[in-house]
Every structure is written in C-alpha cells, then in structure tokens.
Write a protein that binds this DNA or RNA. Structure first.
Lengths: 217, 217
DNA sequence: GTCTATACGATGATAGAC
DNA sequence: GTCTATCATCGTATAGAC
C-alpha cells in the first residue's frame, strides 16, 4: 500500500483550474493544493478493483486473467498496469476491499444504540451476506494459506472483525443484561469468538451453495 | 467419484501368479482374475496424490506446477500423466483424499461406544487437525467457489461429515442424556450444525495461523 | 510404466504511439 | 493516462524411446 494522497472536482468555485501533470497544482503564486486528479486516480483504482472482484467471483483469483479484467472493466491492459504494479497488487487490493466491506457491516451493528443480543447479531450479519463477495472472501482464505501478503490482510481483517463483535457483545451485556463492564468484557470474549466462527461457517455455506449469478448486460 | 475397483495381495492362495501387462491375468484356461497390478497402480496414484498434497500445502492448488509434483514425488511428468488424465483430475483426487481423511476422523468418534458430549466431540476433532491438511482443505473451499467438480466434492464431504456428527450427537442424547430416539434425532440437528460450523472455523484458524513447516529431507 | 525432450497455448507484463 | 500490439515466460500435456 504505497497509495498516495488524493483530491477531486473538475472545477472549483467556478474558477477554471489549470490541471498540470505535476503532483501539485499551483493556483496562485506560492499556493499549492493537493492535485485534483489524484481523486480520479483513486476512483479508477476502485473501479478496476470492483471489476476484478466481479471476475474473481466468477472465475476465482488465479483463473482470472488480466484480459478478463480488461473486458469487465472496459479498460485496457496498459491502463490497469498504470494503476496497479502487477496482478498480485490488484488481488491484494480486491481482498482488502471485500474484507473491509464485511468489517463495515459488522461495525454498523456494533455501534448501534440498542445492541442486539448475540443470536440477533449473528442473524443480521448473515442476512447482510452477499453471495458474490462471500465467494471472493472464501477465495482469499484459500490464497491466504500460502501467500503471506494475503494472509496478513485476512488475519488483520478477521481480528478487526472479532474485536468489533467483542465490543458489540460487551455493549449488549452492559446495557441490556446489566453486567459490570469489567466482567462483561471478559464474558464477551468467548461469545464473540463463537459468533465469529458461526458467521464464517455461514459465509462458507453461502459461497458454496449459492449459484454464480450470470452478469446481465 | 468414478473410482474403479481394485485388487490386492501379492500372492493368492499360495499359488504363484503370473503377472501380465494386460488388464487381466489368465491363470488357467478361461479363468480370469482382476489384475494384481491394479493394486500397484492404485498405490502409485495415492503416492502421487500424497506428493501433490504436500506441494499444495506449501504453494497452493494453482501455484503448484506439474514440475513441482515431479520433484516432490521423484517421478516424471510422463509417469504422472499415466495415472491422472490431467492436473484438474489430480487436484480432485487430492481434494477427495484430504477431505475424506477428515471425515474418517469424525467417523471414529461417531462410532464410539460412549459417545462424547458435543463440547468433547468438538475438542477431539480440533485436536486431530493437521495443519498441512487444514491448509489444503481451506484451499479446496476457495476452489469450490468456482469449480463445479471441486464444489461437488466439498459439498458432498461436508454433508457426510455433518451426518456423522448428527449420528454422534444423537447417540449421546440417547445413551447419556436418555432422550427418546425420535426427539434426540431432532434435537441433534442444530447441535450437529453448530459443531460442524465451529470445527470449520477452527480449521480456518489453523490454516491461517500455523506457519508452513519446511520439508526436511 | 517410466523417462526425456518438446510443442503449443495462455498469460503477465511492457513498449511506444496518441 | 489510455490505447494497441507484442514479447517473453511459464506450464500443461504429448510424443516417442527404452
């Protein structure tokens, strides 16, 4: 992740802004703002990554060729390599995106005012599973078993998710079950662990049992 | 599973048997027995599959080349292709072997006289996990998301395992908890489901957190 | 059945024009 | 930045001798 900063907007305050090819644009003498084009660059990256995820969902991480991604994204090979150093880099980005999206879903419930009980929490998490992303998620698990970079991403995201679940369960124990915060945190650990495990199993189940939807376009 | 029949034993009834290179050996006029060499053939197949599993454990399903397997098995490419139609065929065989081994472990406990309670059952299953096989197992999950043949194998083995767990839990409910067999079977279903889920999660955990052991030879 | 050597296809990645 | 065209590499699978 050597991603650089980003900016945005075509025009700013109605003033016609000269976009240079350097990393910063000089609006007035001595005034520099982050390059507006950087946001586009980041947008392109996510656009490419999204296309890649769709391909991965259909054909798997390794069976997806750069040609597949060019077809899916509408861009060319050269353009893709202008945004990602190589295919492994793109795979890492896609893995992060998919796993982060999962973590975000958990984060929403974890931050709720009325924390759901563990069963309810699990039910909601399962209901939010997207089959296509579940497939890519499981693919990243497989890749993580041999690729250190992917493993780090997966382990990191998994730990983060577990921590969020722990917070959520703790909040439920304190607010609803009226336990002492200290004991709540302790009791929450094995519960969060189980919710996580059951969620992962359900993710696997969805990835295996849900038919691959055909891209309609 | 289009596994063919197999013979065994080097000698039969003390009679010295002439081993021909044809698919059947003619002992006496008109009397044919399954070729004794078939056992050897099957042995070679498992030998190759075992070498493949070791490679997969280190480098993954797709990153493992035929050259890797020749190096690991000590055989040549030609020899491997004499026993497996193609690489996909070999991968399927390896997947079956690994997943079946897992099912066997469960079968042992399921058939025990004094059925362990669910927690104990899970503990034993977890204790029997082999890190290298866990990795290949998780890899098959990833592959199953896009390869129909692998998916069928994984789903089949998973269902079989779950059924065994169901039998085990039912036996425990009947023999230890003294429930009626009918209600026991019904109550066993969600419990078996959970044991399975927690086992799968633990398998994933092991696959991700256990360092890849270096082949010492 | 097993080997060596090789053909062929696929794919990741680059060069250079625009 | 994006394209087209191309290269070089790698890996599956086969051919043919032993």
């Amino acid at each position: 992740m050597t991603a650089r900063s980003s900016g945005r907007h075509r025009k700013q305050n109605g003033a016609s802004v000269t976009v240079s090819t350097s990393s910063t644009a000089i609006l007035f003498v001595g005034v520099q703002v982050p390059r507006l084009t950087d946001a586009r660059k980041e947008l392109r990256r996510t656009q490419i990554a999204a296309a890649a995820v769709r391909c991965f969902s259909r054909n798997g991480l390794e069976r997806t060729s750069i040609a597949d991604i060019t077809a899916e994204s509408g861009l060319s090979a050269g353009s893709i390599y202008a945004h990602y150093r190589n295919k492994a880099d793109l795979v890492r980005a896609a893995a992060r995106e998919v796993l982060a999206k999962r973590a975000d879903v958990i984060g929403e419930y974890a931050a709720a005012d009325a924390p759901p009980d563990p069963d309810d929490l699990l039910s909601r998490l399962i209901a939010a599973i997207d089959p296509a992303e579940a497939r890519v998620g499981v693919q990243t698990w497989g890749e993580a078993t041999t690729d250190p970079a992917i493993r780090e991403i997966v382990v990191d995201m998994t730990d983060r998710m577990r921590a969020m679940l722990h917070d959520c369960v703790t909040a439920w124990l304190v607010k609803v079950e009226h336990r002492e915060p200290a004991v709540a945190r302790e009791h929450a650990t094995p519960i969060a662990h189980r919710v996580m495990a059951l969620y992962q199993a359900e993710l696997l189940y969805t990835a295996l049992r849900t038919p691959i939807e055909v891209t309609t376009s």
